[in-house]
Design a protein around this nucleic acid. Structure first.
Lengths: 128, 128
DNA sequence: CCGGGACATTCGGATATCTGCATGTCCATG
DNA sequence: CATGGACATGCAGATATCCGAATGTCCCGG
């Protein structure tokens, strides 16, 4: 007979750490933007209208919490959401996608960005 | 033609406020316990093994965030989860239920409590 | 090798959060 | 009305978080 775990014994920290990572307006907006796919810091910076160090710092917090991952591409760094192993963590993240990550919202933002900055720079991705 | 909202314009505060309310180990455990149904403060206090003022204060934070509601029953106060209108908020809460609120976990805790304190006091609910 | 652009990190101060201890409030009971 | 139990709140200190400004690091083009 195996011991049935109690709420006192179960480790809630992985989930509460995720909630703490999302307990900030800027970071929720970042996750919402990234729900549409990979983006570089310069795009996120312009989309949010916040200074670069601020955006970078919040991205580090999300990264430390395992919410996002980064990929270096020359001068730029692209961030993307990390698929979560634990279903409860994925569900908590999906809440943001459901609310603000709907394609219509994100596409409007990205289109505005591309219009403002032009298709140069980090936009070209892997398809020249 | 209606303006398509951008992430910058959309108000993320309701969701980030919910995440902030859940960004604490004790509060996640409280929600997990309440996922099984209404409970009075004295039960929560014993289940968590924390001093009463601490539990009470965390319950107030959850209440202010619209996560729980309270019902006075004579000397005792019973707390329960509030069904969320916004589906994204409900999804974020369900993440806790999914992870720690499984019936087997909660029943073990409650059984231990009833065994420890006996069926008297606030247990008798509405059925004498 | 030297600049400049993109991004990360450090530092300092303001603000918020968490906790323990004490006290306050409300209700039932005698 | 006095007492005690259940719960809420006030207060003070330690800790954590957030932000602006400045500085560091890495990479690419010349």
């Amino acid at each position: 007979m195996s011991m049935i775990p109690s709420v006192a014994e179960v480790d809630v920290r992985p989930l509460s750490r995720l909630y703490r990572a999302l307990a900030d307006d800027t970071r929720v907006r970042l996750v919402a933007l990234l729900a549409g796919g990979e983006l570089c810091v310069c795009h996120l910076e312009h989309a949010l209208g916040l200074p670069q160090p601020t955006v970078s710092r919040h991205l580090q917090i999300l990264k430390a919490a395992g919410v996002v991952d980064s990929r270096r591409d020359g001068t730029w760094v692209h961030y993307r959401l990390v698929p979560q192993d634990a279903p409860e963590r994925q569900a908590a993240l999906d809440a943001i996608t459901r609310a603000f990550g709907a394609p219509r919202v994100l596409r409007a933002d990205l289109a505005r960005l591309k219009r403002a900055r032009g298709p140069g720079a980090c936009d070209q991705e892997k398809t020249p």
